[in-house]
Every structure is written in C-alpha cells, then in structure tokens.
Write a protein that binds this DNA or RNA. Structure first.
Length: 261
DNA sequence: TAGAATGTTACAGG
DNA sequence: CCCTGTAACATTCT
C-alpha cells in the first residue's frame, strides 16, 4: 500500500503522534526479511527519543535522538496500524511502542514489509527532492531504452514512483506506458517531469485528511486515482480505461496516450 | 481457481 | 562490466 502520497501522510502522522516520546519496546514478529537481530534493534532504539520522521523514496525513516534511524519499507501489501486499534493485525511484522502508551504495528500478509536499522540512502534523486531536476530527468530518460513506465519506477533512476501512480502520471502527461524512453521528445519529457511533481503533490493533499484509524484500510481504497483504479470504467473526461501489462505489473491506460517508439 | 496485490532482487542473455 | 527482460519471492483474497 505504499507510495509517496500515502507515505507522506503516514509519516507526518507518526511524527505528530510520537515526536518527543521515548521508545518502550520494539518487537520483531516476522524475521524472514529482517537483516538485524532483535538484540540489535533493542540496543539501537529502546529508550531513545523520536526526533523526526522523513520519507526517503518508498521508505519511512524514523530518526532518534541518539542518531539511530529506523527505516520502514512496506513493500507491496504492508500496512501500518496505529495502536491502540480495534482492528487485529493478522500478520504482524513488528510492533513499536512508546513509553506513555501508543505506537504502531506494521503488518503484511505477504511477509515482505520490513524494518531496517540505519538504512543506506542511495545517491538517487527523490521525486520530492531538490536534486530531482528537469535536466537530470531528461538525461536519465534519454540514456536508456526501456518502456517509460519501467523507467520511472526504477528506484535507481528516481526514487518514489510505484505502479499505481506511474499510471496516473503517464495518463496526465498523455504518454503511452509502452513508449520507449529514448524516443520521447524533449517537450514530452518535460510534461512527464511536471506530471510526476503535480500528481504526487495533488494526491498527497487529497490524502492528508484521512483518519489515523483508517490507515490500514482506507488509504488504498480512496477514490483519488483516475486511471489506476479498478472501480472506474472511464476517466473524468469520459474516455474508456484500458487494462494491460508493462513488464509484470498491471497497467491502466487510455487510447489517447501517445506511443513513442 | 488462477491471478492479483501501490515492490525488489537475482539471474540469464546479449 | 553494462543493459534489458523475465521470473521468483510469499501469502491471502477474490
């Protein structure tokens, strides 16, 4: 369930709720994908105070006053349930609790979401970062020869775009997801760049009032996406939404998106 | 019942 | 060694 707009909302909420509080416990409940031991998590953050929450690509980074960082990656189907909650988390990955009550559980029925101790921050522009410039993006798009949808989702090129918003972005920019990256003309690369910024900003704003109690459900079911949304048959301007595949992921698009190849 | 779920990584082939 | 495409991962829900 995690892309940039969702992570922005979750991150600012976690910060609002727990900034300045000390960690009472962290309990790793599903260790398959986790690199560090329970002991290492305990030593790093138990007793330390939460200073800030920042998003880095598709990860959320919790920084503590002792300099330690807890990274959270929700992968495909992970979710955060703020505690206490009426909902029982069926497949918990880990639980983080603060000293005077509250905290959250990260759950994922696919078992892929994971906590990361002191994660690396790759030298790749985040889509909301200052170093994500039109110049950089134009160069990156021209350098390679793959489907444009795969390119904008490649976290080694830019960090933060995932399958759902990639469809929204390409629809706004009026570019077919199968367009070959190095065949896209300069003015359309600019449209694409602008669409990445605009779609991300608009969706973040749209989601900012979602209730904390609905984080583990409603965020992904909100009707704010216009094409990557199984509930919709047509775009707001009445064009039929088509379904296909780019690489191995499901793609929603329309006929009017131009194919450059 | 096969396929989908907002993702990443390993590996084969060129 | 670089680039690209494909499949695996893992598990429940529809």
């Amino acid at each position: 369930m995690p892309e940039v707009p969702e992570l922005n909302v979750m991150g600012s909420t976690i910060q609002k709720l727990y900034k300045g509080k000390k960690v009472k416990s962290i309990e790793i409940l599903w260790t398959k994908r986790v690199k560090c031991s329970q002991q290492e998590f305990d030593d790093a953050i138990v007793g330390s105070m939460l200073q800030s929450v920042k998003r880095e690509g598709k990860e959320m980074h919790l920084r503590f006053d002792n300099g330690q960082v807890l990274g959270i990656h929700l992968m495909l189907t992970g979710a955060i349930t703020v505690q206490p909650s009426d909902n029982i988390v069926k497949y918990p990955i880990f639980e983080l609790l603060f000293e005077d009550g509250g905290g959250f559980i990260v759950g994922d029925h696919m078992g892929q979401a994971k906590p990361i101790l002191n994660p690396d921050i790759p030298n790749v522009p985040d889509i909301e970062g200052k170093d994500f410039t039109l110049e950089y993006f134009t160069m990156a798009v021209r350098k390679r020869k793959i489907a444009i949808k795969d390119l904008i989702q490649d976290q080694k090129v830019i960090r933060g775009v995932g399958n759902a918003y990639a469809d929204e972005i390409l629809w706004v920019a009026k570019i077919s997801p199968w367009s070959v990256s190095n065949r896209i003309p300069g003015n359309k690369i600019k449209d694409l760049y602008t669409a990445i910024l605009d779609v991300t900003k608009a969706a973040s704003k749209e989601l900012e009032n979602v209730k904390v109690s609905e984080f583990d459900f409603s965020l992904e079911n909100k009707d704010h996406r216009f094409v990557h949304n199984p509930k919709r048959k047509a775009t707001p301007d009445g064009e039929e939404i088509l379904k296909g595949k780019v690489g191995n992921s499901k793609t929603f698009y329309t006929e009017s998106q131009i194919l450059y190849n």
